[in-house]
């Protein structure tokens, strides 16, 4: 039986192998997705993001245990950073998810970011589709520990949960652009620590500034390690899903995501075409010489190289 039929049956080994193909640029990965794409779209995708050490993995572990009680099948994609020097990585998110490894209704895949800077990896979006086709009801994507601007998760998640902890900085941090703007639900984890209330208030104040919007993100407290605050978090996610579906935003988001997915693929294809073009390297070297000699500039160089490459 071939790998596509196995994936449709929910075979984990098939899913794992197809994800590896996608990650490594093996064309068989996209071939599978092309044929099976119509089977995707059933799973609800939850993004878990936040700074390193905020408790994303522990929270994910707790969240999945509760969701599993409802019988839903859950898949997790956990992304950790890749070394920019060696290309190696230590993917350690499974450490917090030990019990889940024995649960037949759970699939966990760790991914190295492999040079991709958006907080996930390039293969994360297609891997979500693979796990969707496999029959997952819920897919949780845990991003790398993020700083301030890694926000790609919103392009692929229906609900984004922003996890933070007390004491990361004053309230000016909360009004900066970027990561603080993307939460549909905020969780202040490790809420037994000093300053938790203050962090909640600062987040609430930031959200007040946003003015009238049809969805006001709730700010919750949790102590993930003790399993506290998880029920409330699940309720908040469900409420957000209900809001998305009733308001029509769900459909609009998914359409927007499809568009950005196509654009991403085009960008990638353009770069491959540029790199593969036989004369690119030669032209680049020539322009570098000219620019170094102050006879040319990079803007003109880029325009001329682009004009030279045929895009059929």
């Amino acid at each position: 039986m071939d790998v596509k039929a196995k994936l449709l049956e929910g075979n984990k080994r098939a899913a794992a192998r197809i994800i590896t193909w996608i990650e490594s640029g093996d064309p068989r990965g996209y071939e599978c997705l092309k044929d099976l794409y119509a089977h995707a779209g059933h799973a609800y995708v939850i993004g878990i993001t936040g700074p390193p050490g905020a408790g994303k993995s522990t929270l994910t572990d707790q969240l999945v245990k509760r969701i599993r009680k409802t019988g839903k099948k859950v898949s997790i994609i956990a992304v950790d950073p890749t070394s920019p020097f060696t290309g190696g990585a230590i993917l350690g998110d499974r450490i917090r998810m030990n019990d889940l490894t024995s649960d037949a209704g759970v699939f966990i895949r760790s991914m190295g970011a492999r040079g991709y800077l958006g907080g996930i990896s390039e293969a994360t979006a297609p891997a979500i589709k693979v796990l969707d086709i496999m029959g997952s009801d819920v897919i949780i994507v845990e991003t790398v520990g993020v700083g301030q601007s890694e926000i790609d998760i919103v392009k692929h998640a229906d609900t984004t949960v922003m996890v933070t902890v007390p004491g990361l900085g004053d309230d000016i941090q909360t009004i900066k652009a970027g990561i603080m703007e993307i939460g549909d639900v905020f969780v202040v984890n490790k809420a037994d620590r000093d300053g938790a209330k203050r962090t909640v208030l600062e987040l609430e104040a930031m959200l007040d500034f946003n003015g009238e919007s049809p969805w006001r993100p709730p700010v919750l407290q949790a102590i993930a390690q003790q399993g506290k605050g998880i029920e409330v978090l699940i309720e908040a996610i469900e409420k957000h899903e209900q809001f998305l579906r009733e308001s029509g935003v769900f459909e609009a988001h998914r359409r927007r995501n499809i568009k950005s997915e196509i654009l991403e693929l085009i960008k990638k294809a353009v770069m491959i075409r540029v790199n593969d073009h036989s004369e690119t390297e030669q032209m680049l070297d020539a322009y570098v010489d000219q620019i170094a000699a102050h006879e040319q500039n990079p803007f003109t160089a880029a325009e001329q190289i682009m004009a030279h490459i045929q895009f059929k």
Partner: peptide, 12 residues
């Protein structure tokens, strides 16, 4: 193994 360019999944 990480320093040798491998992806290590560490399970604890």
């Amino acid at each position: 193994l990480r320093d040798a360019g491998m992806e290590v999944i560490y399970t604890g």
